[in-house]
């Protein structure tokens, strides 16, 4: 495994250092509790929280004071963020020596507690969002940290059935896996990277599924990349017995 050294000292902040609660409303609002006491950051370093959701073109940012004098956000508005999946980032910033240098960061923090408008808790590696997609039933959207499966909001029940109905699952998910792995490799993702961006998570997923458990080749070796991806997709289909589930699901639907 390649060891990566952050030569400029930016540290990963455990997500447990920030607890977020999102409240329903128009717009939604959030509260946060931040505890950096065990991390020995300079007391004068600034602390900020940023919020994101899939498809949003804005990233609201909230100042939370300094490490030594935190200001916990209360009822802060999440204007312009409409997706069900909300993600927060907590940053500690050195403004005294080298201006604007990141001392620490926690990314992809999900709210602990939410209302009906927001999904809470740990996310999978493929959150589903409903969107107006015209004549498309589904497509993928690649954000900075996450990849989303967008499903057509104008097809009743599609977002529920796409992951559970054996016919839908068997037809859609192998192609989802294929596309995401292709994008991850094209964008230079690394399964051994010390982050939880979507490309890292998905390539790690592929590495575990691959029958030989080998890292993906680089994009310079296009044939090898395609072969690696197809072996992962094949393993995925075998693991879930997709053909058998499809056939059984088709039989059931014919009988009913």
């Amino acid at each position: 495994m390649i060891q990566r050294v952050n030569s400029l000292g930016r540290r990963r902040i455990p997500r447990s250092c920030a607890t977020l609660v999102v409240h329903d409303g128009t717009p939604r609002t959030f509260d946060a509790e931040i505890d950096l006491s065990s991390l020995n950051f300079p007391e004068v370093a600034s602390v900020v929280i940023e919020a994101r959701s899939a498809g949003s073109s804005v990233v609201p940012r909230f100042e939370c004071g300094k490490v030594g004098d935190l200001v916990m956000p209360r009822q802060q508005p999440l204007t312009a963020l409409e997706g069900q999946n909300l993600f927060f980032a907590l940053k500690v910033i050195d403004r005294s020596e080298r201006v604007g240098r990141l001392l620490g960061i926690a990314e992809n923090i999900r709210p602990e507690s939410t209302g009906d408008q927001t999904l809470a808790g740990r996310k999978g590696i493929l959150p589903v969002e409903r969107r107006p997609l015209g004549q498309q039933l589904w497509r993928l959207e690649y954000g900075e940290h996450d990849v989303f499966l967008l499903v057509n909001q104008d097809v009743a029940g599609l977002s529920e059935s796409i992951g559970s109905d054996p016919l839908m699952y068997a037809v859609v998910y192998p192609e989802v896996v294929r596309q995401i792995l292709t994008q991850a490799i094209q964008r230079g993702g690394d399964p051994d990277a010390d982050d939880d961006t979507w490309s890292t998570l998905w390539l790690s997923f592929g590495l575990r599924l691959h029958p030989d458990h080998i890292n993906p080749p680089s994009m310079d070796e296009l044939d090898a990349v395609n072969e690696w991806i197809e072996m992962v997709v094949d393993a995925f289909c075998n693991q879930h017995s997709l053909r058998d589930r499809f056939v059984q699901g088709d039989l059931l639907s014919r009988e009913s």
Binding site: L8, R10, V48, K91, I93, R95, V99, G100, R101, L102
Partner: peptide
Amino acid sequence: EKTYDLLSLTADQ
């Protein structure tokens, strides 16, 4: 952006 808080910089910086 991996190292600096670009959102707080001036254009000169």
